[in-house]
Amino acid sequence: MRSKKNVETTKLQEGEYLEKEFDNYIEMAKSAVDWTLFCSYQLKPNFSEGVYKILQLPSMQIAYTDMQGGIMFDYVAPEECITFSAMKNISEKACIDQMKLETGMIVVTDDKKIYNFICSAHVELIDVSLRKNADPLLLQKLTQGVDKYYIDKNKALTVLLTNIINEFADVSPLDKETSMQIETEITQAILQILDTQEAHIPHFTKSEKITLEIKRELFKHMDHKMTVESLSNDYNISMKSLQNSFKSLFGLKPTQFMRLLKLNLVHHELMQSKPSETTVLKVAQKWGFAHMGHFSRHYTELYGENPSVTLRTNISMIDGMKEHCVERKEEML
């Protein structure tokens, strides 16, 4: 498992509200109150533009996220909390670990696990993190649904949470009585769902299961030259099925996905290196790019600048991609 890397995030007191726009990954991670984000991979230009709207209650935190998308990262939910997340709008493809996300789903996750999130385009979601020392009945029922999902019929929960965020945005800090009333409303709404539905277990085709396994294994072999044909042979899956499954899960062809991962590793290493210590050619070849013309074009399309410009920037990344997100020991020297 890739390592957890702590990031110092914004803190809120009970009753406080925060609205924060972000236009880069660093600001996105720092503004994620009590959430830990790390090991980020940019999949599209302007991938992390968006806004957070967060309301801190006595035993709950409501966090609305509107994000441009085209990003993958690992995350850990707020400590000592069970989180249920209402998918308000999933415009294209998105996954949390081994779960395909769709608009109208309510996904339950736990703070004791590192999750991987990937989205190919715009997403809106609302997370409610419940402290484990809070309502015992609600906690018990939610625990039974961890890593499963429910359906937000008629978008009842999504509408309620959206209205709460919008109504109390200009009323900060909230008084104790109002905060408790909000928590009661949310508790009743989610209990209504939990009492009338069985938790759904995510289902995948055989090809999608293999694709998810390949995705996990790719991080162990990022220094190798991998092709769709070699993956097809190694995992006994047809090239067509592999192509279709990658598109179904991530909205990308496997060649695009692998290239984007490697481009991110080059980017992170260039940002943390000095021109006197290495060259763009050396770093690109290290991560498997043999044709510098193609590499430079793909890099510039993704990051909006030539790789030589990145090398001269020398900015330390907060999540330390090379040290914390690549399992190949020889690549951490």
Rank of each mutant, 00 (worst) to 15 (best):
S3L: 15
K5G: 12
E16M: 13
E19T: 09
F22G: 15
D23V: 05
W35M: 12
W35K: 05
Y41E: 11
G50Y: 01
V51S: 08
Y52E: 02
I54T: 02
L57Q: 03
S59C: 11
D66M: 06
M67H: 03
G69T: 09
M72W: 06
F73D: 01
P78L: 14
N89Q: 15
I96R: 11
I114W: 02
N116C: 07
I126R: 00
V128S: 01
R131A: 13
A134K: 01
A134E: 06
D135N: 05
Q144V: 12
V146A: 13
I151C: 01
L157Q: 07
N163Q: 11
V171S: 14
T178R: 14
T178I: 13
S179A: 12
I182T: 01
Q188I: 10
L194W: 13
D195L: 14
Q197D: 02
P202H: 03
F204C: 12
E208G: 04
K215A: 07
K215V: 14
K215Q: 11
F219I: 11
M222E: 05
H224L: 14
T227L: 07
L231H: 08
N233L: 15
Y235D: 04
N236H: 12
I237S: 01
F246I: 02
K247Q: 06
G251D: 01
L261H: 08
L265E: 01
E269K: 07
Q272L: 07
K282M: 05
A284Q: 05
M292H: 00
G293D: 00
H294C: 08
S296T: 14
E301A: 14
L302K: 08
N306V: 14
P307M: 00
V309N: 04
T313Q: 09
G320P: 02
G320M: 04
E323H: 14
E323Y: 14
E330W: 05
M332Q: 15
M332C: 10
